[in-house]
Design a protein around this nucleic acid. Sequence first.
DNA 1: AGGTATTCACATGAAACTATTCTCTGAGTTAGG
DNA 2: TAACTCAGAGAATAGTTTCATGTGAATACCTGT
Length: 393
Amino acid sequence: MDIEKIFDSFSKNSIFTNKNVLQESYTPENIPHREEQISMMAKILAPALRSEKPSNLFIYGKTGTGKTLSMQYIKQRLIERALKLGTKLSIEYINCKLRNVADTEYRIIAELARKLGKEVPATGLPTQEVYRTFVDILEKKNVMLLIVLDEIDQAVKKIADNFLYNLTRLNSEIKNSKIVLIGISNDLTFLDSIDPRVKSSLSEEEIVFPPYNAEQLADILLERSKKAFKKGVICAGVIEKCAAYAAREHGDSRRALDLLRIAAELAEREGKKKLTIEYIDKANEKMERDKILDIIETQPKQFKLVLFTIIELSKRNAKIFTSEIYDFYQELCKQEKIEVLTQRRVSDIIAEFDMLGLINARVISKGRYGRTREIKLMIPKGIEEKARKFLIA
DNA sequence: AGGTATTCACATGAAACTATTCTCTGAGTTAGG
DNA sequence: TAACTCAGAGAATAGTTTCATGTGAATACCTGT
């Protein structure tokens, strides 16, 4: 076994020329089928280049419809132009979903302050204090600040919407700088659920990103694959199949790209020189499997216990109820000498599994015999055993 | 038979609590002048 | 006297518990035939 040989044959056989092109982090220089949205954004934000405050902007569309990518693209271009013109413009991108980074009011403001060059401790200070430092910086900097809040719905769900209100109100407290909010959300109903006052100020302008259809996805894939693969690697129909798969899942381009990349990785690992259609199916399965196992593996201990319970009980019955789970779970805890959580909490845990798609739960009424959740396990049979092992470990 | 009132067994919501991590402040301590 | 140490107060946060309220439909209970 000669390591060098492995490396040699690896670089010789590679079917990729540049795999990064298929990765999520890659920013292509043109974004197909989003011309309309991008020029809209440009029109709305252009006043910033003349130091006039643009309207706040709200962008929404499902996952993988190019929202974030388009935003990054515009950001890039705006900054380039601002540099040329000598306008003081700063665009900060914040992903509100990142746990332990920007998922609370305190952390978002702290993160902003940090990006503007002022370290803020992660904890210990009153939130108001952090607001003050943030405002101070802005007063000193005299800058037009565009704040991009990605996955803003997540933040509001967790924090309550007066946070957005605070943010929009900051403008009246600051003399030297201007703040523009750009919210990105993939929950289409998000706007309906927030305070009307906030709503009207946040969404002065709105842009919708519709899902891609299969044709458009194919275009995207084709364009990227030209750069990602060696010539002639891709067999006929591969791109189309990828696009079709992803289009079925509400036109998610990220998924389409992942699918293509993983399929190619599988083919490469098997020493193939061509990417044939079968690999798409394999990749699809693999992604599904990996996703589930990954979720399971990273669950906290109590969650694992509950999930284990569900798997065990599902062997007997296809459909199970909350009470059964709680009984079994209690026993399990006693056996393992682990503290027992309340039913209330377990109920929430079950709801979270539902969100993650590991189970399918719906509330039913059994009439005189109360109301409960009817729960079905959604983990494919094939990996059930594997999942169990993760849980026990 | 048909209609309505009950009732169950949880769901769902809100608030309060706990433990942990971290800052800030000021009192007490130390070492050097 | 300036620098240092260290305990205590106060915050933010995640993960819970406690308390309170909500709820869909199978049954129990009427009511009048």
